[in-house]
């Protein structure tokens, strides 16, 4: 959608429905690209560490996570990855719902479901990072 999205945003980003949305769509379009570039490092780095580096997935357990989250570096890494990937993915799905759901009612409810579940996941993931307790259990 890249080229068409940009020309839509500059000429008629509201899709002809209301004028206020044109800026929002332009920022959303930009956000997809900026977050995408940052996510290349965060997510591909995460996948390399988790699946390839010494032993890959076979070495993951509670103690492994405790060791990583003892360091603020990996906490910040995971937090940034959580927020960026969730916002990027949620906005991507918003576009997809807009593309395929024809009825206004259907669109509304699908998007409501999307936003509520994404907010829940972002909140849950954030809470887990900030309240992690290595001595639990």
């Amino acid at each position: 959608m890249s080229l068409t999205d940009r020309s839509l945003a500059l000429s008629d980003g509201s899709g002809g429905r209301n004028r206020q949305r044109s800026n929002f769509e332009l920022y959303a379009w930009l956000f997809m690209r900026i977050s995408g570039i940052v996510l290349v490092f965060l997510v591909l780095g995460h996948l390399f560490i988790m699946n390839i580096l010494d032993g890959g997935v076979q070495r993951i357990n509670f103690a492994f996570v405790a060791g990583r989250w003892a360091s603020p570096f990996w906490q910040v890494w995971d937090l940034a990855m959580l927020w960026l990937a969730m916002l990027h993915g949620t906005n991507g799905l918003r576009t997809i719902i807009n593309d395929y759901a024809e009825r206004d009612q259907t669109r509304f409810w699908l998007k409501a479901l999307l936003y509520v579940s994404s907010a829940f996941i972002i909140l849950l993931g954030t809470l887990v990072i900030f309240t992690f307790d290595p001595t639990i259990g």
Binding site: V65, D133, G137
Partner: peptide, 19 residues
Amino acid sequence: LYVHVVDTALVRVSPEAYD
């Protein structure tokens, strides 16, 4: 990612649940 955040959240339940 939805599923993954939920499975990671098990570190807040117990080490056994996560493992």
